[in-house]
Design a protein around this nucleic acid. Sequence first.
RNA 1: GGCCCCGUAGCCAAGUGGUAAGGCAGAGGUCUGCAAAACCUCCAUCACCAGUUCAAAUCUGGUCGGGGCCUCCA
Length: 481
Amino acid sequence: MSLRVYNTLSGRKEEFQPLQPGKVGMYICGVTVYDYCHIGHARANIVFDIIYRYLRYLGYEVNYVRNYTDVDDKIIKRANERGISSRELAEEFIRAFDEDMDSLGLLPPTRQPKATEHIDQVIGLVQRLVDRGLAYAANGDVYFAVEKFPDYLKLSKRNMDEMRSGARIAPGEHKRNPMDFALWKAAKPGEPSWDSPWGPGRPGWHIECSAMSMAYLGESFDIHGGGKDLVFPHHENEIAQSEGATCQPYAKYWLHNGFVNVNQEKMSKSLGNFFTIRDILQTYDAEVLRFFILTAHYRSPIDFSDQNLQEAQVGLSRFYEGLQSAAEALDASPDSSAESKEGADLEARFREAMDDDFNTAAAIGHLFEGVRTINRLVTEKGFRKSPDKIAAVRELRAALLRLGDVLGLFGSEPAEWLQRLNLALLKNTGLTEADVQQAIEERQAARRDKDFARSDRIRDELAAKGVQLLDGPQGTTWKVR
RNA sequence: GGCCCCGUAGCCAAGUGGUAAGGCAGAGGUCUGCAAAACCUCCAUCACCAGUUCAAAUCUGGUCGGGGCCUCCA
């Protein structure tokens, strides 16, 4: 079984064959840095983070490039509103982006280029397009002439005639065809600008990604990704300007992640249902958010809601509880020299799921089965005397940790993670840890005296506040639910 | 209007030709002083209709319902 990926360009799953054996060049459209990232950004970046991780797990040497677009109309507008320079604004939100991605537990890409540091490459690319007759200068702007590129719209599969009827030329633009798009924009007073053969100006949106991807990955590379909303116009235009300039195929596989809805509605500022990553992390653990995102296939829409996040929290807790049980059981048992193929079997199922277009939802389903097996084995009589069972738990635990890492999950110490979650949830109950501890001690005393009425009353009172007691051989623990 | 996607159990969610993964919730059981947790068992014929096929959730056509893109957007 080999990796198959859904390619937006062909509209179907294809076997993944990198241009160079063993190596993958991957470019993901990052953000335009003018505001805090929202959960849509979180999803896109988490999705491509696991794609990056999985490709590395498969043994590929991955060159993963994710850009910052740090010059753009929206940045200029926002900077003007705040009375600071575009550069200051961009730097502020680059920092914020880095912090957010870090708190989400993302691996840093191989490179994170900035548009403003690749102006020369942008100008070079625009020049090539002008030289080849695919672009024209007009009043200091340079536009791409879409009718000169026959493959235009091959990615988004739209119809030029129908698109044209809806397209407009904005005031101040000098397009020959309403569908043409800007490669270079003449600077207006007060805007950041760079000298160019067409006068002072700045890159249009789209061209910076072509310039940066080619700078680090070459004129043809393997994977280009981003959110579905980038298919048109951004990625369509990237293809046009890149292939138009180089006469080479640009990206081989186009991967697009689905949207995030909020309470079944499209997330938008006007609806007031716009959550930033920072907002969410106030309430939910970053790993819970990641787990939630990965329980759906990356191309499907997901619905962000309190209920769904809480379900994810419960699901992730199940993993940590299972890992905790496994660790405790193994600690309490002698080492086993027996072998077990439980771990390898689980890994095979995981791979099969992931090979099918990164089906993390199915993969996690298989991991749940591993947890169940661990829980079963660990509670079976004679576990400690069974080298086979000990080996099975050992291998399953190792597999869960190894495969979890491919998804960016289960990286915490289970006891610590569970404790942290419990303490966080405890705040909602109005109780303190000391309150719970004291209640547990009182109940223990009652139980010793066989005063079960009192002991049960204490337990019920805590349960009513959301704290569930769990009696075990090692004493009584508790969890908030 | 054009293009595209979706509709699977109470909820979330995989599955795209061979009689439906997984999680949550629910029912019964084991364990427990009783519980909880854990484990075991049970719980769907896949929006609807008509076709193709030996065989369809999975293909085709249609109906109903929901959503997205076409302007900035992950």
